Amino acid sequence: MSKEETLVIPFKRAGVNLQGSQFSHGHLENAELTNCNLQQANFPYANLQRANLIGSDLRQANLLEADLREANLIAASLREAILRGANLSRALLRRCNLSEADLLEAHFNEADLSQAIFTEAEAQGAYFYRANLSQAILIKAHFHKAYCLEANLSQIEGDRVDLRWANLRGANLRGANLRGANLRGANLSQADLTGANLTGANLRGTNLQQTILSNTVLKDVYL
C-alpha cells in the first residue's frame, strides 16, 4: 500500500497479528484493535481518534504525528515507539509502557497516564496540561522543557528524571520520589510537594514561589 492510499478499518480486528503493517495516513477512527500485535507497524499521520487499542503490542511502532485523541491504550506497550508530535489529548494510557519512546512535543493534555512507565523516554517539549501521571514511573526520563501545568504527578517514581526548564506550575507532586532529579530552571510555583523526596536534586534557578514544601525531603539539594 502506498503512502498516499487511505485505509479504512470499519470493523473489529481483535487479537490479530498486524506486525509491520502499513497504516500511513489511514482513517482508523473508532477502530477496534484490542490485543493486537502491532509491533513495528507504521501509523504516521494516521487518524486513530477514539480507537480501542487496549492491551495491544505497539513496540517500535511509528505513530509520528498520529491523531490519538481519546484513544484507549490501557495496558498497551509503546516501548521504543515513535510518537513525536502525536496528539494523545484525553487518551486513556493507564499502565501503558512508554519506555524509551520518542515523545518529543507530543500532546498528552488531560490524558490519563496513571501508573504508566516512562523509563528513559524522550519527552522533551511534550505537553501534559492537567494530565494524570499519578504513580507513573519516570526513572531517567527526559522531560526537558515539558509543559506540565496543573498536572497530577503525585507519588511518581522520578529517580534522576530530567525536568530542566519544565513548567510544573500548580502541579500535584505530593509524595513524589525525585531523588537526584534535575529541576534546574523549572517552574514549580504553586506546586504541591508535600511529602516529596528531593534528595540530591538540582534546584538551581528553580522557581519555588508559593510552592508547598510541607514535610518535603531536601537533603543535599543543589541550590
Rank of each mutant, 00 (worst) to 15 (best):
P10Q: 05
P10L: 02
P10A: 11
F11G: 07
F11I: 15
F11N: 15
F11P: 07
K12V: 10
K12D: 12
K12M: 10
K12R: 12
K12E: 12
R13A: 07
A14E: 15
A14F: 02
A14D: 15
G15M: 09
G15P: 07
V16I: 13
V16C: 04
N17K: 11
N17W: 06
N17Y: 00
N17E: 11
N17T: 02
L18A: 14
L18T: 13
L18V: 11
L18N: 12
L18K: 14
Q19V: 01
G20N: 11
G20K: 11
G20A: 12
S21I: 03
S21H: 07
S21K: 12
S21F: 08
Q22C: 10
Q22W: 00
Q22E: 09
F23G: 08
S24N: 03
S24F: 02
S24Q: 10
S24E: 10
S24V: 15
H25D: 04
H25R: 14
H25N: 14
H25W: 03
H25E: 04
G26A: 15
G26C: 14
G26K: 03
H27T: 07
L28W: 13
L28Y: 10
L28M: 14
E29G: 03
E29K: 07
E29R: 08
E29H: 09
N30K: 07
N30V: 04
A31F: 01
A31Q: 07
A31G: 07
A31W: 00
E32Q: 14
E32N: 15
L33T: 06
L33I: 10
L33F: 10
T34M: 11
T34I: 02
T34P: 00
N35R: 08
N35M: 04
N35E: 13
C36S: 03
C36A: 06
C36T: 06
N37C: 11
N37L: 15
N37W: 02
N37M: 10
N37T: 01
N37Y: 06
N37P: 02
L38A: 04
Q39C: 09
Q39L: 08
Q39Y: 01
Q39R: 14
Q39A: 13
Q40Y: 11
Q40C: 04
Q40I: 00
A41F: 08
A41L: 06
A41R: 02
A41W: 05
A41I: 05
N42E: 13
N42F: 03
N42C: 10
N42A: 12
F43A: 08
F43C: 06
F43R: 01
